[in-house]
């Protein structure tokens, strides 16, 4: 059974996600447009595609920070712990949000309302297939679970409150906070998916896949540096390795 507190927390999370999504919707429309130039090797078009993707990523980071700040318990953490958690979870939450927008019929990710990107589009934006393929495999796997808004929101909350992230000081508080979301998710699934007992462990294993994806992403960031593709300041701040 879900306690009244758990029920209201889940409602709050789903509403917070929708609110953050709404807020960034207008921003998404303002990013550098995806060029319709047919020639994939056109240098300017390639730069525009890279800018398009990085600007969407920046909006996504802002959305994740806004959402985290509305997570019960998050603002109880010190600012340093908030940064330590967000620095590592951001890419994983971004990949969860990407998977949420995966359309299996066209094997594409729909970031903007009417703009979908397949694997080749990701490559045209400057990403390497060593990163693109795992993204699409993960998205396909997540899509098969058919998670609803509440399950995504809880999974994201569990992902953010991971006490084993580098530089986290108050690990026990993070762990206690994570536990409230794990318990809520477990009860929620028992009620909503009564005849699929494996769904809970299956969802937790997605968090493990995200760790692998995160290290593949670090290789992608390193490869971009080798190609002199500069990340914008916010992305560089959280993903680049600063000597």
């Amino acid at each position: 059974k879900l306690t009244p507190e758990q029920l209201s927390m889940i409602k709050k999370l789903v509403a917070a996600q929708q609110q953050c999504n709404q807020r960034s919707f207008t921003d998404r429309l303002k990013v550098t447009p995806w060029p319709q130039v047919p020639d994939p090797n056109n240098r300017e078009a390639r730069q525009q595609r890279f800018a398009h993707f990085t600007e969407l990523a920046i909006i996504s980071v802002q959305e994740i920070v806004d959402f985290a700040k509305q997570l019960p318990g998050f603002l109880e953490l010190t600012r340093e712990d908030q940064i330590a958690l967000l620095k590592t979870s951001t890419i994983e939450v971004m990949l969860l949000e990407t998977s949420r927008r995966y359309n299996p019929e066209i094997e594409s990710i729909t970031f903007l309302k009417d703009l979908s990107y397949n694997r080749d589009d990701f490559a045209k934006a400057g990403l390497q297939f060593e990163f693109i393929n795992p993204i699409f495999e993960f998205s396909k796997g997540m899509n098969e679970l058919q998670l609803n808004d509440a399950e995504y929101a809880l999974l994201i909350a569990i992902n953010i409150f991971s006490a084993d992230r580098p530089n986290v000081q108050d690990q026990s508080l993070v762990e206690r906070l994570q536990h409230t979301y794990v318990e809520a998710l477990h009860s929620y699934i028992c009620i909503n998916r009564p005849n699929d007992r494996l769904m809970f462990p299956r969802m937790l294993m997605k968090l493990v896949s995200l760790r692998t994806l995160s290290s593949v992403h670090s290789e992608q960031v390193f490869a971009l540096r080798l190609q002199d593709k500069k990340l914008p300041p916010l992305l560089s701040e959280i993903w680049d390795v600063h000597e």
């Binding site: 980071v61 920070v65 700040k69 600012r79 908030q82 940064i83 701040e237």
Partner: peptide
């Protein structure tokens, strides 16, 4: 932890 000025800004933003 490095200073993460931009992330700090996003975290501070609404609370002011």
């Amino acid at each position: 932890v490095k200073d993460h000025q931009l992330l700090r800004y996003l975290l501070d933003k609404d609370e002011k």
